[in-house]
Write a protein that binds this DNA or RNA. Structure first.
Lengths: 245, 245
DNA sequence: AGAATCTAGACGTCTATACGTTTTTGTCTA
DNA sequence: TAGACAAAAACGTATAGACGTCTAGATTCT
């Protein structure tokens, strides 16, 4: 009997969710094994069935468990990289793998938005945008060139920040400090030849393959907060994404 | 008063969700505008507040609306390609855009799984897998070479199917007909040079850039059902994905 | 034995209600 | 007038119970 009581302001369904997650991780319920029914869990935790459901639903969205109507709830077979579906940034993921990352800001300027950028950021052509061109290194090898554009109107004061500070944290972290909750990013990917400018910056052949990426990031109210062009060295960069049904 | 009553076996929360979606699409609630409160909607639809919530929660997950605690529910500013986050297949998305797609199966064979494939499909090295090599065309131009591997044990009877049938529908549709609900796919992307074999099949230069993709598809219980290598012509193929937080 | 039926278990939907928390807004006081 | 405070509005969490639907397994009938 693990009866939970309301404490510390953490909702019961969160505690139950995390408790189940922990028990699964510890192997108390094994892969493919049936969890106790909602009724049983409700009794075990001393809560109502709806509260248990709310916790389990989160785990289903994550893919940690799955259900069969009329049968039960089961522990899913794990697959690696469960979190690659998520909006996660270069710093976080590289650091997890113990790779040394660094960045160098090449350009930081305010320019009028070209048509494409204006369209992506939902502003008028010619409106001011902040352009930040960055070269990123992993283990001191240059692998990526970024051209980021953010609306000047929303983030004007970013210009007063220290360049070193900007280099050492991800742009998203900074955007969130302005109160925008990043919710979603849409990326378009292509394979291209490097071309002269990128080849020189990355120190590779002009026709070497590049993973080209355009990305627009949106806050939870749908406001576009960032648009970037991104050129990644093909032989040193791979991108993992998860699609969900 | 749009009071909804249970009918046709469609759950109320689904009807409410779709009704709200429709009203938003029709512009009855505009971008950034506040929806009626949960209480008001509950009265309007003649249901309880929890039922309204269940419908709204779905729309939040989709990103169509967002909420602020203590303030209200608002229509999010739309961004295009909302559905590119989803597990969607080539046929579906190309057809939507009015592009003619076709496929030609080059090889279909049963072979013992190599180490990498076995690991991805959670089977033993040497276990039988079905290998299907396919060339895909859009508007009669070859753009993609697929090497798909599926566990022989799960899908043995696929071998008895007509090749023409297999060419004309996506493999996923077929896998689902075996009772596996496809839930998630993890893809790894790189930019590469074509190489001789692929260059010849796609009729491009040997060093032309290729968007190289490895993908593992999982059923909702976590069973891997398909692993593919995929070589896409860089200048004719782009991939759009959405990352969510 | 095989097929049809019944039934228990488990998830799915829905209600009506209560109280908590956050934000906004308006009023009242110092 | 500025600040404190109170109230209202809206979402967040939680309950207890009812009934629906689906699945698998047991039972019964043929």
């Amino acid at each position: 009997m693990t009866s939970f009581t309301k404490a510390e302001g953490i909702p019961l369904y969160v505690k139950i969710r995390e408790n189940l997650r922990e028990e699964i991780k510890l192997g108390e319920y094994k892969q493919g094994e049936k969890l106790p029914s909602e009724d049983e869990l409700a009794i075990k935790y001393g809560v109502s069935r709806m509260t248990v459901r709310q916790g389990i639903m989160d785990l289903i969205d994550e893919g940690l468990v799955y259900r069969r109507h009329g049968v039960g709830t089961f522990v899913a077979f794990p697959h690696l990289e469960r979190d690659h579906s998520r909006l996660t940034n270069f710093f976080e993921s590289a650091l997890k793998e113990g790779i040394k990352v660094s960045a160098q800001i090449l350009t930081m300027e305010v320019i009028p938005a070209k048509q494409k950028i204006a369209a992506e950021l939902h502003i008028e052509e010619g409106d001011s945008v902040i352009h930040i061109k960055t070269l990123r290194y992993t283990d001191d090898v240059p692998v990526t060139v970024h051209d980021a554009f953010i609306p000047h109107k929303l983030f004007a004061s970013i210009l007063t920040r220290d360049l070193k500070t900007l280099e050492n944290q991800h742009l998203w972290t900074i955007l969130e400090s302005y109160g925008y909750r990043l919710k979603r990013a849409v990326q378009r990917l292509e394979a291209r030849e490097a071309g002269e400018e990128i080849a020189e910056l990355l120190n590779i052949d002009t026709n070497a393959p590049i993973l080209y990426k355009e990305r627009t990031a949106y806050a939870d109210d749908g406001t576009p907060v960032e648009f970037i062009f991104c050129y990644n060295r093909g032989d040193m960069y791979s991108l993992t994404v998860t699609l969900e049904r």
